[in-house]
Design a protein around this nucleic acid. Sequence first.
DNA 1: ATGATGTCCTGGGCGC
DNA 2: TGCGCCCAGGACATCA
Length: 276
Amino acid sequence: MPELPEVETTRRGLIPTLEGRKIVKVIKRRDKIRIAIPSDFEKRIEGMRVKSLKRRAKYIQIFLDSGDVIICHLGMSGKFVIKVIDNEPYEKHDHVIFETDGGELVIYNDPRRFGLMTICREDELEQHRLFKNMAVEPLGNEFNGDYLYEKIKTRKSAIKTMLLDQKIVVGLGNIYVCEALNMAKISPIRKACDVTLGETESLVPIIRNVLSRAIEAGGSSLKDFAGTDGELGYFQHLFVSYGCEGEKCSNKECGGTIDRINQGGRSTFYCPQCQK
DNA sequence: ATGATGTCCTGGGCGC
DNA sequence: TGCGCCCAGGACATCA
């Protein structure tokens, strides 16, 4: 569920606690989440200072002054919880804990364990297997109507499936793809090669817009979060199609009803009336 | 290369 | 009340 906006919100929420801080202790409560956490993970982090936090696709990258980068992915149920140090027992799915010299704990909690936590050298980051084949950022300048059209014009898969492909564009997941296609009035089951240049040119700004507005909403949720015992990773956000089966399509003068179908084992929500 | 399908994992919701 | 079943889905593996 955490897609680009949730990951970006999480990154921003972690900055006040981590940036400029020294990580004094790392506790690994299991050896693997989705993949193994390196055996030297704790040793490489303890005593190091956090230079900055960046995001690439749905990954958070924590840059250390040692030249290492911690790489985190929230999977679908991962979140960070910030707590002051106390003697409370850890929660059931607290997998990795970072203690800072500011007296705070940054806890990675992930019930379904689809997330990922690893570390690599900063100068090897771009060539890391997780990042080297990754497509452009949806909010970056390279992502435009021409680019998307060129990427999909020969592809026979459904446009929805293509937008979920991180080699086409990164950061999108099931929710925001449904939202963007509904607003663009493009059917999720259309073959990607049948989508016209004109349509990709209108779709791209819609994708940017839906992501930007979600990041903004996440920013608002961070204000409420500050100083509380809250969790980073999710925030309340209203969707116009996702999860809205049976409800009226929100496109002006449409009058259709949101339907739910299955594509590749995933739910798709769309309006058969206006999404053609 | 592409596309279709299976896999990982747990909690929550449902039917009986 | 409790049991079994199915679903949620990001990214990757594996197959044709």
